[in-house]
Write a protein that binds this DNA or RNA. Structure first.
Length: 671
RNA sequence: GCCGAAGUAGCUCAGCGGUAGAGCAGCGCAUUCGUAAUGCGCGGGUCGCGGGUUCGAUUCCCGCCUUCGGCUCCA
């Protein structure tokens, strides 16, 4: 059960540098704040000061610096809207002008609690009846023996470990960016706070440059380019998070799939096809149902059964229970195989009461496992490498959906490798080299590798420690051969085995988790897989899940932004556009058009009555890599004037020469 | 799912109690032109959906849907 393909990528306001994670930052870690972070953190205090001057009842929680600025979480009666920004910013500028000093004071726990009780912490003055409730909680979380300090600027005193800039005058170049809601401690049950985001820089120029960068990022947003270049469409009537690949996008995807398929063939994979649905029992065996039920489309019931339960007047809750349940025999089998209570007594039900149905497949592994199990396997057959562009469906929360990068139906460039324990290391290596080929071909050289290991203190992992040691060593060794930086992260393994994730950085510095390779000891047990060894005895194979792209949807989304829509010729939906200067060259233009088409190029002809400047402009906007300008001069010389969308005018060449050059460029998948 | 914002022509957006407007795109005609916009003309909208208030609603109110920014989640 891979946990592939979709882990979060940082949004524009990415995770705060502290406090969101379960572990608190140590004082030493805090002291390492960069100058810019320090500045931004001070801005958060100034923002709080400004808010309090306008709304004195506000109660503050956290105000950390984040990747692109800072925020402060707080609760107050007034609901902020962007209309309030101007007022708050004006007050912040005033505070900067007042040039207040940031003063640190170390206080005792008792003093801290007393200040918080009086409403003084995170306030401009004592506020009877309005105690600093979040600060009280924060004080409570500070480990005994750790220094407790507060920072004061002007009248504002806040519980804070610092560090800060010296004076508020440093914080002039600041801008509020957005307001949203958040949960206290990221915990839904702890109530909702307002979160106000801002950004700040040392100089005015840097601040302005930041907003220019944001504009640039907007221009390469895959949702915008997807529309402009007609790559994909999402239609309300089809459903949220369901991608319709329009012809241009489909061409792009097809090229990517062809590319991957070629590499798979080289590496000894077999491609398979499997259906989009599978019986519930399959997912009970794999363990994904009902464990991940909330993230799946509901089961599809068989018509006869549906009619019967309707006839019986079965309640919804009852029906759900009957769908979720397993027979005693099934439970006993599974619990024995896995050596633990995988299926508890509460899920066991009489066989005749059980309801079966189908599930839109949330992952491809069970189907591939069944292909592996469909015939007896010998150690001589291993490794068996089954690959499929398999479409899966997951019920993502509506608020999570985002263009192509977070969707409800997506196609994984999935594969499952079944091998012997001894082969794991070599197979992991093979998977990594495939990912590397893919990323290199696409010019994504800026990536890091994350090796997820088990947390030795946690009991959630299955399998023997010896197995884990071997698998982790294999992953570590494999990662070393990549020649790129990698980090080992204990506790980041899936419960069934260690994994290696590729986190790529796009041109504007955002990180995306795409490809993944995961070693799995668990599913072979659950499905009771075996092969015959050289000793003529049954052995348990090891499974490797891997997906170099992650999903076609997400990868394409990232690729659109990576190239800002300017795809390399081999990927470009339209590779060449012929532009005629006048009707007089129509015949020649048609000849060239037919010639390029016959060579397998994706070429179009614009022989409308427009001026050449207008035709070039349109082709540029459509980001067509090659424009061939044809006039009477070219027709006479059987040549083409080549213009490249990024490199500009490349001069006049004989048709045959252009054809040869572009064919080679496409064949070699040049960037 | 939660908080907030937004949905007007294919796209980008204006209008905001008296049943709609621009630019681009599209279509037609003229122009035959040398590296990012030739001119003129025409068509196109149950103003996201459903209710309510009103003599009258795109405009005000309520509900829903979708999108966006966050939160939470991601086998």
């Amino acid at each position: 059960m891979p946990r592939p393909l979709r882990s979060a990528y940082p949004a524009p306001h990415s995770a705060p540098l502290s406090l969101m994670s379960a572990e608190r930052k140590t004082l030493e870690e805090r002291a390492q704040m960069s100058d810019l972070e320090r500045l931004r953190h001070s801005c958060a205090h100034i923002m709080a000061t400004a808010i309090l001057r306008i709304w004195p009842d506000a109660q503050f929680a956290y105000g950390p610096p984040v990747e692109n600025g800072f925020y402060y979480d707080f609760d107050m009666k007034h609901r902020l809207t962007p209309d309030d920004f101007e007022k708050i910013e004006a007050e912040m500028k005033k505070i900067a002008k007042e040039n207040q000093r940031f003063e640190k004071k170390v206080i005792s726990r008792e003093e801290a609690i007393a200040l918080a009780k009086s409403g003084r912490l995170g306030g401009l003055s004592e506020r009877p009846g309005n105690e600093s409730r979040f600060k009280l909680d924060l004080i409570d979380k500070i480990p005994a023996g750790e220094e407790i300090s507060c920072f004061q600027n002007g009248d504002f005193i806040d519980l804070c470990a610092g560090p800060h800039v010296g004076y508020t005058s440093k914080c002039k170049n600041v801008k509020l960016t957005s307001v949203s809601s958040s949960f206290y401690m990221g915990d839904e049950s702890k109530g909702q706070l307002q979160r106000l985001y801002g950004t700040a820089f040392e100089s005015k120029e840097e601040l302005e440059a930041h907003f220019v960068r944001l504009e640039e990022a907007k221009k390469r947003d895959h949702r915008r380019l997807g529309k402009e270049l007609k790559l994909f469409h999402i239609d309300e009537d089809v459903g949220q998070g369901l991608i319709l690949w329009t012809p241009n996008g489909a061409t792009l995807r097809q090229e990517l799939q062809t590319f991957i398929s070629e590499e798979l063939r080289k590496q000894g994979y077999s491609q398979v096809f499997t259906p989009h649905i599978g019986k519930l029992a399959l997912y009970k065996t794999s363990g994904h149902f009902p464990y991940y039920k909330d993230a799946q489309f509901p089961a599809i019931m068989e018509p006869d059964q549906l009619e019967q339960i309707a006839h019986e007047g079965c309640s919804c809750a009852e029906m759900t229970a009957r769908i979720d349940a397993c027979s005693a025999q099934f439970a006993a089998q599974m619990n024995e195989r896995t050596g633990r209570e995988m299926i508890g007594k509460e899920r066991i039900m009489d066989a005749e009461k059980l309801l079966d149905g189908f599930l839109l497949k949330p992952m491809n592994c069970p189907h591939h496992i069944k292909i592996f199990a469909s015939q007896p396997r010998s150690y001589r057959d291993l490794p068996v490498r089954l690959a499929e562009f398999g479409t899966v469906y997951r019920w993502e929360q509506s608020g999570e959906l985002n263009g192509m990068t977070r969707v409800r139906g997506f196609t994984q460039d999935d594969a499952h490798l079944f091998c012997t324990e001894d082969q794991v290391a070599a197979e992991v290596l093979g998977c990594l080299s495939l990912v590397k080929v893919v990323l290199n071909t696409l010019g994504m050289s800026d990536y890091r590798v994350r090796v997820g290991l088990r947390d030795p203190d946690s009991g959630k992992y299955t399998g023997s420690p010896e197995q884990w040691d071997r698998a982790e060593a294999a992953c570590r060794e494999a990662a070393k051969t990549l020649g790129v930086p990698f980090s080992e992260e204990p506790g980041e393994a899936a419960f069934y085995g260690p994994k290696i994730d590729f986190v790529i950085k796009d041109v504007i510095g955002r990180e995306w988790q795409l490809g993944t390779v995961q070693v799995d000891y668990q599913l072979p047990i659950r499905f009771d897989l075996s092969y015959t060894g050289a000793d003529n005895k049954p052995h348990r194979p090891v499974m490797i899940h891997r997906a170099p792209f992650g999903s076609m949807e997400r990868f394409t989304g990232v690729l659109i932004e990576h190239f800002a829509g300017h795809f390399p010729t081999w990927l470009a939906p339209e590779q060449v556009r012929i532009l005629t200067i006048s009707e007089k060259v129509d015949t020649f233009a048609n000849e060239v058009f037919e010639q390029l088409k016959a060579a397998g190029l994706r070429v179009t002809l614009n022989n409308e009555a427009d001026k050449i400047g207008a035709k070039i402009r349109l082709a540029q906007l459509d980001k067509v890599p090659y424009m061939l300008v044809l006039g009477e001069k070219e027709a006479a010389a059987q040549s083409v004037a080549v213009r490249h969308s990024k490199k500009g005018d490349l001069g006049v060449k004989p048709v045959a020469q252009f054809l040869e050059e572009i064919t080679a460029e496409v064949k070699e998948r040049r960037l």
